Simulated assay, not measured.
Amino acid sequence: MSEKDIKKEQENAELQDNTANTEETNGQEHAEETAVETGSETQAEAELAEMKDKYIRLMAEFENFRRRTNKERLDLLKTANEELMSDLLPVMDDMERAHQSMEATKEVDALLQGLELVFHKLKHVTQLKGLKPIEVKAGDAFDSDFHEGVTQIPAPSEDLKGKIVDVIEKGYTLNEKVIRFAKVIIGA
């Protein structure tokens, strides 16, 4: 072989070594990248699984909370009037005694006094619970927030036009909320 051929073979050998080294280096870098990607994918999957678990637990906790509050609300509605009814029992007892005494006695004054006492007791219990009558009298201005106009009649005087002429039924508020509007007649 000539010197030129030997030199070319050496250059080819060096070139092949460099190519092999480059491929080996690239292969190692690729393996490291794959390992890093696999590690980060595994970590991401673990985080996702943890988040899903937290989400499922939170949803279950919320569902339990919702069920519990619904049950408490239903229980509260069932027993909401218990205290009121307990306070009204003495008034009912008094009414029964008044009814019995009406059959036995013929004294009207005594019956009226007894009935007045029972009525006063009933008003007292309802006021303690927050029930208040809506004060309305003839000549007051009509207010749709508290009054219900049942009908209109010709006003007996000019100053009653558009105002309340008569009150048919009292209205009531319970803790500042209207539970029954006062039924009134309005002057036209």
Results as ranks from 00 to 15, higher is better:
D109E: 14
V178Q: 06
Q16G: 04
A31T: 05
T173W: 03
T151V: 09
Q16M: 10
R97S: 04
L128G: 15
L89V: 15
K8Y: 09
E11H: 05
E29A: 07
A49P: 01
T69H: 04
G149P: 01
K129C: 03
A13N: 10
T42N: 13
E63L: 05
E37G: 14
G187L: 04
T79I: 00
M59A: 14
S157T: 08
D159V: 04
E148R: 07
S2I: 05
V125F: 07
E103R: 14
A44N: 10
E107Q: 15
D145S: 15
K7F: 00
D17N: 08
N18Q: 15
D87R: 13
P154E: 10
E107G: 14
F62S: 12
K106E: 14
I185K: 04
T126H: 10
G171C: 06
K161Q: 06
Q113M: 14
M92I: 15
E14W: 00
T34L: 12
A141M: 12
V91S: 08
A20P: 02
A182G: 03
V165S: 01
V136I: 09
A155V: 00
A46F: 05
G130T: 00
A44V: 05
F62Q: 11
N175S: 04
G39K: 14
E135K: 10
E11Y: 02
M95S: 05
L122V: 01
A155H: 02
L89W: 08
D17K: 05
F146C: 04
R66N: 06
A31Q: 09
D109H: 06
T34H: 03
V91F: 02
V118E: 07
T105F: 12
E37A: 12
T19K: 03
A49R: 13
L131C: 04
D75H: 07
A60V: 01
R68P: 08
F119V: 13
V125H: 01
K78D: 00
V165G: 06
K78C: 00
K78Q: 05
D140H: 03
E41A: 15
L84R: 06
M1R: 06
T126K: 09
K7G: 02
T38I: 06
M59P: 13
E61C: 07
L48A: 12
R66Q: 08
S157D: 02
E169S: 09
L160M: 03
H99M: 13
S101M: 13
V36L: 00
E32L: 15
I186V: 01
G171L: 03
A141Q: 14
D166N: 13
E33G: 11
Q16D: 11
M85L: 14
S144R: 12
E23A: 09
T34W: 13
A104I: 10
V150G: 02
H120W: 03
K129R: 07
A46L: 08
E11I: 03
Q43N: 11
L88M: 06
H99R: 15
R67S: 14
L131R: 02
E14S: 07
A35C: 05
A98G: 04
I168G: 04
I134S: 01
G139T: 05
E37S: 14
D145F: 04
N64A: 12
F142I: 08
E45K: 10
T19Y: 05
